[in-house]
Amino acid sequence: MRVGVVIFPGSNCEYDAASAMSELGATTEFVWHTATDLSHLDGVILPGGFAHGDYLRPGALARFSPVMGALADFAQSGGAVLGICNGFQVLTEAGLLPGALVKNRGLTFLSMPTTLVVTSTRSVLTRAATVGQELVIPINHFSGAYTCDDETYASLVANDQIVLRYRDNPNGSRDDIAGISNVAGNVVGLMPHPERAMSTLLGSADGRVLLEGFASALADSAALVR
């Protein structure tokens, strides 16, 4: 199974993401943001960082990178797509996930471990976890407060799209939301960094169950996109 990790100018978590997926048995490759063909991949990760310097708004310019057209097609076919931190911001700006990420309540850059609660296992990220399971995974962001209008929120709840919540809301996210999926569950975005929680030696190995889920989703994804 082959995972592409997209590199925008300013991405900085691509090696961590690729290393985590390799450790879980996937073949990984880096995809430059000008790529227009993702058809050889079984899954795509948009990593954390500051794509295009986060100028204007996080994700605002990355949304127009050439790779995003191919990514929209890939997602539309049912391909597994994961946006971590800045990658989540890019997915919302591109309209592949609803809502938006705004500045943290308190206006501080937050870099700390958080406790997440799994709230849905329908998604490609949470399918190996159990509902109610608590996971300690770090966050590292300034604009991580999830927001959306009431209508969008109602549809997120109705379609079981809220996949992860913070146990103790660190940033002012609506309804403690840490991660959401699209309606089909094949596109997921989250602000915390599961790729930084792969080993107890480094603080936590709780990210494994999420990325193992994503790795196991690649076979299903391959059947849809190939």
């Binding site: 705004v102 500045k103 943290n104 309540r105 308190g106 206006l107 407060a145 927001t147 209008d149 002012g172």
Partner: peptide
């Protein structure tokens, strides 16, 4: 400008 109803922590500060 931010829409009504969207929190503006900078404005509040």
């Amino acid at each position: 400008t931010l829409r009504e109803g969207i929190a503006d922590p900078e404005g509040a500060t």
